[in-house]
Design a protein around this nucleic acid. Sequence first.
DNA 1: CGTCGTATTGACCTTTCTCAAGTGGGGTGG
DNA 2: CCACCCCACTTGAGAAAGGTCAATACGACG
Lengths: 239, 239
Amino acid sequence: MQDISKPLRSKSYSVPCELCSIGSICIPMALNNTLESVLNRKRSFAKNEILVTEGDEFQRFYIIHSGALKTYVIINGTEQINGFYLPGDIIGLDSITTHKYNNTIKALTTTLACELKYDELMALVTKSTQVRDTIFNLMSQNILNYQKMILAYSQKNAEEKLAAFICWLYTQYAKRGHTSLSIKLSMCRADIANYLGLTIETVSRILTRTQELGILSVRGKYICIKDLSALFQLAAEKI
Amino acid sequence: MQDISKPLRSKSYSVPCELCSIGSICIPMALNNTLESVLNRKRSFAKNEILVTEGDEFQRFYIIHSGALKTYVIINGTEQINGFYLPGDIIGLDSITTHKYNNTIKALTTTLACELKYDELMALVTKSTQVRDTIFNLMSQNILNYQKMILAYSQKNAEEKLAAFICWLYTQYAKRGHTSLSIKLSMCRADIANYLGLTIETVSRILTRTQELGILSVRGKYICIKDLSALFQLAAEKI
DNA sequence: CGTCGTATTGACCTTTCTCAAGTGGGGTGG
DNA sequence: CCACCCCACTTGAGAAAGGTCAATACGACG
């Protein structure tokens, strides 16, 4: 286990609290003293460290400050990746209904995450309509995202899926104010392939092809978007 | 437009209020007089009638009492189906965050749906922790369902997708107490194919093949499940 | 500077799509 | 009441996308 109060690594990208997915409720000045009891701020996890295991009792959400996580389940002995989570994202909303975690959560890189206790958050929801609206908004957004993702993954071919995936990465960072066209992938090809329902070879081939089209520049885990609008067009999404 | 207070058709399958997705908050005895102002009970829609169009201002959820709906968006001029909704399902949770409907909602058959006003529901959430927990539970369940669906549709081949789809239909009805192995599809092959990201021809071929395996018996829109456990196994899900 | 794990590339095979023709059932008009 | 028609569905043959297996290249790390 890691040191609880390990400081933020200046090298890695992180969200300022104002841009975090929980937004306004994360700002101490908005909620004064109530906040401290709800959030155990900034716990650090090492690369490949498992935060929770599928089936564990649900107690707290995780909100990523810096780094990246993946969630997965084991089906027939093989890992099936459910999602990737980046700075500002919240994990655990699906667990409210089951009272336990439905996925294993693992750190892809060194990650700093805020812990948010469920019980205490619920108490705040009743007390403050601002918190209530924030949480409803968050859950609704989550549902909308999943709808879009299902559309994407049922309708798109391999090339479009991969383009959509990179667009998603770009958008996730952009939403938090980080608009660089250079992206460092925190996951390996196998994880991407697994998540998109493709094979490693197909992912590799398509990255090469997209590079030859002048849309991307790929070098290992580093991707540079050369033509953003072409990438979005390939993903069949409106920019 | 239809007669608002058209009575429930006895022929079609419907959920009793106790099994509706909004569950306890739909039972008048639990919420007494507050309920009537929130729910405009049982409005009827004709087959192919459009309830709301993508982009319309969001005001109310729809909870299906009987019949079936589909939601879709138009991408590049073609319809892309987002989901099918059956008795007990609630539509509109994704709209909380956008304040407008993200999909067009259309009736697949004659459908009876309860309308639930958003503003009034939110007021109830603050007043009653029971309502609050019900709604959080509902949204969480929704997120969990989408997670599972994404897994399903990114990892499965055509045969598994279709089996999973029929399992889902069966399960949806079973959850509401309707455990018959005979299912009448309310959607056409084209809709199923669209939704699953397949072609009509593939859907047709797989239905035929699955029938030859003795798992299903297909006759137009009528499907009879001959071997439920084999079907779930084909869908790669635990029963 | 070698080693191990990850990524790329190539040849071949399976699945699904595409295009095209044929079938069948429900509704309408004679 | 029957025949016809239309639309939804089924079936078949060839094409394309993606998967599989195998060899090779790269790169981080000791």
